[in-house]
Design a protein around this nucleic acid. Structure first.
Length: 670
RNA sequence: GGGCCCAUAGCUCAGUCGGUCAGAGCACCCGGCUCAUAACCGGAGUGUCCCAGGUUCAAGUCCUGGUGGGCCUACCA
């Protein structure tokens, strides 16, 4: 099974086509592209796969709203991804779409094989089903016996579904993880998966009745079912290689499976580590060598929001800064695997300091001096002195470290190693003082010194090719190097330039940014001018992922658009003002607070609300709130709740609803 | 509630097996240089290594407890 080491296979998640591409998508894809280009530069055969996930409820609904077929819809929605990858210089080898025949055939063959070998079984699921919300609810979910989302009636449905015997392969996965400590990275994520595996692993429901959700891969033996989105989506990693569960898989598969790196966002780690691995075991395949979960970006120190999303729209960033500095920045600024913050100020400071001041200016000063004092030619090397040998040793080390760290996806460490060399180049100029050598007429030494500085830039250009291919070519041009002269093998030797070659007139390859672009400033202002004024001092906002996109929700998604209701429906809801008398933490649930609320009745209501992540109970006492007064009481983790506090922000609570004037508790709200 | 991780300079973070481990970069300040994109080079300062105990000849480092933060997971009417 082990493949030869002259090949390399890296994947990104397939992005959910209904979302617009954002910084998180760009980040993952840039990382994959850089490491893929690096391996190509090393002469390895590389396969770099990305793509889109095109099935599921949301696609179906969006297509319905547009009045077109789901296929037409996804055909249109895939374009922004491919356009962005083009702009970002992403050189993927394959782009897979889950609606493609080559993929659908593999999903179906995999289902058939698992069924034939007894890894699938039918079971009946019973529950309350809301046609309006297109999903199941448990008894305690229901509100007055109706769908809590839509208020529509629900019906008791017995539904047959197909289950994958994931539990059968759990032990194999535990063993695999024990034997392959590097399988899940970073280590903290590995621990997370190990924790998950300590519990029993349940079987996985992998079908959805087509009557409910038709936009998926039909089951081969029963077209009344379509395939669960994750089961469908995960198989892309092998379907794109021409894998056949039921026969000959072809050369690509033999060459490239198991994958070297699956890059994923931390939000979809468990799915990949557990679902995908057990699926592969069932198919008799080995999991990828490494599943690397990277972090999320915040923006300007704040959680992502719609306006902040605009501020880091990848297309904007490419417009204003260019693709290549952006590629450098996202990989340099934070260690891969950690969360990080994208701030325009930090972008400007980082790219100015590293690219313009250190690297760009090293080239500029060396070539300017060569132009003035060496007739614009690449100088001849002189006999190496102590300082020169030290420089060479540093170059050797930088090149070795750079490759090692890049292959471990520790991009920031790779760049640090390279910049040690670049800074040493600047220091070398100061110590050797070429202007003094020129005055002294020591042309031989002058030529040697300037030559070594140019050689350092060549080393940097060579190593940076995967990150900034066009900039690397520009650097090569400035060094009078012909196309294709930035070969990696042996590149550390500070003697590879063409002696006597005529240098072009120096021109900055990385111009400094003196201030933030006007368009960025305007967007920043707009984004920060509209703060969501919280009624109480909020707990620090939790970072909301902008992350790598998940292929889809893990359950059949609730309808995004609720149907219109009549005024009669609305009048069934009784809203009243209330005043919080007491607020305490739920004894047995981290996210819940328990309130005593005066709603104008003889006895205060006890109400449980899931807002502990946002609000400190102490500061809420005395707060005027709006209460849903006629909700059926229910026990929440053992504590009865006799109503509901209105809050803004959905699941991610951002503010409590109140009224503008102090009113007696119990005042009707409508 | 269960699980995992983190806390070191103004900021971002390195610190491996307990023993030059009090460090880097950025920012700031001072100095140098004059080739250069006002860039570059050097130097300096600031530390309760989160707190309290413990183990040890010796503790950012190991152990226990606590505080604060993050993440996974359950509950979120």
């Amino acid at each position: 099974m082990p493949r030869s080491h002259d090949s390399y296979y890296v994947t990104t998640p397939i992005y959910y086509v209904n979302d617009k591409p954002h910084l998180g998508h760009a980040y993952t894809t840039i990382a994959a592209d850089v490491v893929a280009r690096w391996h190509r530069l090393n002469g390895r055969r590389v396969h770099f796969l990305t793509g889109v996930d095109e099935h599921g409820q949301k696609v179906l609904e969006a297509a319905g709203r547009r009045g077109i077929s789901p296929q037409d819809h996804v055909d249109a929605m895939v374009a922004p991804y491919q356009a962005l990858w083009q702009r970002l210089g992403i050189a993927y080898d394959d782009f897979i779409r889950t609606t493609e025949a080559r993929h659908v055939a593999v999903v179906q063959a995999a289902l058939q094989r698992l069924k034939d070998q007894g890894d699938l079984y039918e079971a009946v699921y019973e529950g309350w089903y809301s046609t309006a919300a297109e999903r199941f609810w448990t008894e305690k979910d229901l509100v007055d016996g109706k769908c809590p989302d839509t208020g529509q009636p629900v019906e008791w449905v017995q539904e047959k579904n197909w289950f994958f015997r994931m539990s059968r392969y759990a032990d194999q996965l535990r063993l695999f993880m024990a034997e392959h400590p590097d399988f899940v990275q970073p280590e903290s994520r590995r621990n997370e998966v190990l924790g998950y595996l300590k519990k029993d692993v349940a079987d996985l429901c992998i079908s959805r009745p087509a009557a409910r959700m038709s936009w998926g891969v039909p089951f081969p033996w029963d077209a009344t079912f379509v395939t669960y989105v994750w089961f469908d989506a995960l198989l892309n990693y092998v379907s794109a290689l021409g894998y056949r569960p039921d026969g000959d898989s072809g050369p690509l598969f033999a060459d490239f499976w198991p994958a070297d790196h699956h890059l994923v966002g931390k939000d979809i780690l468990t799915t990949h580590a557990v679902y995908w691995s057990t699926m592969l075991f069932a198919l008799g395949l080995s999991p990828a060598r490494c599943l690397y979960a990277h972090g999320w970006w915040t923006v300007e120190g704040q959680k992502m929001s719609k306006s902040l999303g605009n501020v880091v729209d990848p297309n904007l960033l490419v417009d204003e800064y260019g693709a290549e500095p952006l590629r450098y920045f996202v990989l340099r600024e934070i260690p891969f695997g950690y969360d990080g913050d994208f701030s325009h100020r930090a972008f400007m400071e980082r790219t100015n300091a590293d690219l313009s001041n250190d690297l760009g200016n090293l080239l500029h000063r060396a070539s300017s001096m060569s132009e003035k004092w060496l007739q614009g030619r690449v100088g001849a090397l002189d006999e190496p002195r102590e300082a020169d040998r030290a420089l060479q040793a540093l170059a050797d080390r930088a090149v070795a470290t750079y490759g090692r760290e890049l292959e471990a996806l520790q991009f920031h460490k790779a760049f640090e190693a390279l910049w040690e060399l670049v800074r040493a180049g600047n220091k070398y100029i100061d110590t050797e003082q070429p202007w003094a050598l020129n005055r002294q007429g020591d042309t031989a030494r002058l030529a040697g010194v300037l030559r070594r500085c140019l050689e350092i830039v060549r080393v940097a250009a060579t190593l940076l090719q995967p990150v900034m291919p066009a900039k690397a070519r520009q650097l090569a041009d400035q060094l009078a190097l012909p196309a294709g002269a930035l070969a990696l093998p042996g590149c550390a030797r500070l003697e590879l330039l063409t002696e006597g070659a005529t240098l072009p007139s120096p021109s900055p390859v990385f111009p400094r940014l003196e201030e933030l672009p006007a368009r960025v400033q305007a967007l920043l202002q707009a984004a920060t001018a509209a703060p969501p004024a919280a009624p109480a001092p909020p707990a620090p906002a939790k970072e909301t992922p902008v992350s790598t996109p998940t292929p889809a929700a893990s359950t059949p998604a609730a309808a995004e658009e609720t149907p219109l209701i009549s005024i009669d429906d609305f009048s069934k809801v009784q809203l009243r003002t209330g005043r919080i008398l007491e607020a305490t933490r739920h004894p047995d649930a981290d996210r819940l607070l328990v309130f005593k609320v005066d709603v104008g009745e003889s006895v205060p209501r006890q109400i449980v609300a899931g807002i502990a992540s946002r609000f400190d109970p102490a500061v809420l006492v005395g707060q005027q709130v709006v209460v849903v007064a006629n909700l059926k009481p229910v026990k929440l983790r053992g504590v009865e709740s006799q109503g509901m506090l209105l809050a803004a922000g959905g699941k991610d609570v951002r503010g409590l609803v109140s009224v503008s004037e102090p009113l007696p508790p119990g005042t009707i709200v409508r």
